[in-house]
Amino acid sequence: MSSTFFTASPHWRWLIVAYFFFGGLAAGSYFLATLLDLFGKDRRLVRLGYLVAFPVVCLCGLLLTADLGRPLRFWHMLVQSETFRPMLKTYSPMSSGAWALLGFGGCAFLSFVAVLVESGWFDWPALRRLSAPSPVGRVVTVIGTFLALYVAGYTGVLLAVSNRPIWADTTLLGVTFLISAVSTSAALLILLGGWGGVTGDSIHALERFDRAVLVLELLVIGALIVSLGRVAMVWLNGWGVLLVAMVLGGIAFPLVIGARPSVRGSLAPVLVLAGGLVLRAVIIFSSDGLR
């Protein structure tokens, strides 16, 4: 038996599942907005990505704070409570992740403001420099994108850097959550873009990209199960059934219907989003139940 089965659960439940899901959406939307900005032509999806990222990352901060045993001490993650010196452990994913989340939140805020200025919601000439074509704006989005990738992936690494069953029995959770963050974010932008009237080649490019990412996600989840070896037997229960349902309903089915232009619509992206949430719930709760 893996030595991970002799440990206790940290009782990370729905608040953390929600944080992993929304953190992935904020980070993935920012990543896609920057890549669409750098290599695409359609600014509407770029603006949408940056508009989504900031409010969602704020929600993430609230979810994490609410989950603490002592919520008012949330700042102990960043500042040592006695000396007021910065608190950073590079080898602790939760510590480095807290800083990454702070930095990403800052970049997401600046890019959010830039979009508001660009869209004419308010005009303050000094802020125009935050928009991407300007060097300042470009630096913010590139730094923000590196931090976004960190935020999207560190949550899985955090689970692996433990001694819990499933989590610490594989080293692929980080990359799994990262890819899922991007696939769900692409689905979110497709959905919101569709409602916002973005059509044609821009959306089709995003849909093609999402299908490619879903194929990658399928391969990585397969590799994850193989890497667990005998530990994967713990999924011979309801959680395993849910994981299979997630793979079929949240990846395979959207891939099949997405390939047919006639049945395109909201169904595929909604299923991809639901799949991302179920994936995180299965990973968290299936380990939580094992003392």
Binding site: F31, L32, L35, L36, L38, F39, G40, K41, D42, R43, R44, L45, G200, D201, S202, H204, A205, L206, R208, F209, A212, V213, L216
Partner: peptide, 13 residues
């Protein structure tokens, strides 16, 4: 994958 997928795609807007 994003670079390849988004390269010069989309309606100029």
């Amino acid at each position: 994958m994003a670079m390849v997928s988004f390269r010069n795609r989309g309606t100029r807007d």
